[in-house]
C-alpha cells in the first residue's frame, strides 16, 4: 500500500512539473489536474513493484532529500569538473596506465551502492565495472593507477576522491 502511494505520488509530481503553466488553478488547468491524477493512479497500480522493490523508504525523509539537493550541485559537481579536466588531459597527452582494482565500499544498502557506483563513474579517472554482491565491493576500472597500487588487494573508497569525501556524504544520505 505504501509502495502504491509513493509511486502514484511521484508520478503525479512529475506530471505537475511537466505541465506547469497550462492554466489558472495555481499554475495548472482543471483538465490537466484530473488527467494527471488518473494517470498517476494507473502508474501506481502498474509500477508499484518496480520502484519500491527493496521495501526501504529512507529517501522520503526531508532531511535526506535536503542533503541530496546539497550533494549534487556541491561536492559532486566539483568532482565532476575535476574529472573532466582530468579526461581532457588524458585525451590530449595519452598518458594512461589502466587496470581494474577492487574497492571496499563499506556501504550496506542497495541505494547506497547505486549512488556510489554512479558517483564513481562520473568522477576522476574511474569507471565502475562490477559489483561483488556478497561483500558489496566494487570493481573499478581506473585509467591511471598510481605506482604500487596494483599490488594491493583492496583499496578504500575514500582514497578515490581528492577534494570532497563523497562516500561519507552518500552514507549520510542513503544509510
Amino acid at each position: 500500500m505504501i509502495a502504491f502511494l509513493v509511486t502514484a505520488g511521484m508520478a503525479f509530481l512529475l506530471y505537475l512539473v511537466l505541465t506547469a503553466g497550462s492554466g489558472t488553478i495555481g499554475l495548472w488547468s482543471l483538465s490537466e489536474l484530473v488527467m494527471g491524477a488518473l494517470l498517476a493512479l494507473l502508474t501506481g497500480l502498474v509500477a508499484r513493484k518496480f520502484l519500491c522493490r527493496s521495501e526501504s523508504y529512507r529517501l522520503l525523509s526531508p532531511l535526506r532529500l535536503l542533503l541530496l539537493l546539497v550533494y549534487v550541485p556541491g561536492p559532486f559537481f566539483i568532482e565532476l569538473t575535476k574529472a573532466n579536466l582530468d579526461v581532457a588531459y588524458r585525451v590530449i597527452t595519452m598518458k594512461i596506465r589502466p587496470g581494474i582494482v577492487r574497492v571496499h565500499s563499506g556501504l550496506k544498502t542497495d541505494l547506497g551502492i547505486f549512488m556510489l557506483a554512479n558517483s564513481i563513474t562520473l568522477t576522476p579517472g574511474t569507471l565502475s565495472v562490477g559489483i561483488d554482491e556478497e561483500t558489496n565491493d566494487l570493481f573499478i576500472h581506473n585509467i591511471n593507477i598510481a605506482e604500487g597500487d596494483e599490488k594491493r588487494e583492496v583499496i578504500e573508497s575514500t582514497e578515490l576522491f581528492g577534494l570532497a569525501n563523497l562516500p561519507a556524504w552518500i552514507r549520510r544520505i542513503a544509510e
Partner: peptide
C-alpha cells in the same frame, strides 16, 4: 577520446564523463 583511446574501457571514460558534462 572515443576515436583515440586504445580499448573499450578507456573509450568509455572519455564518452561518459566528457559528453555528460
Amino acid at each position: 577520446g572515443l576515436l583515440r583511446f586504445p580499448d573499450v574501457y578507456t573509450r568509455m571514460h572519455a564518452t561518459t564523463k566528457a559528453t555528460t558534462f
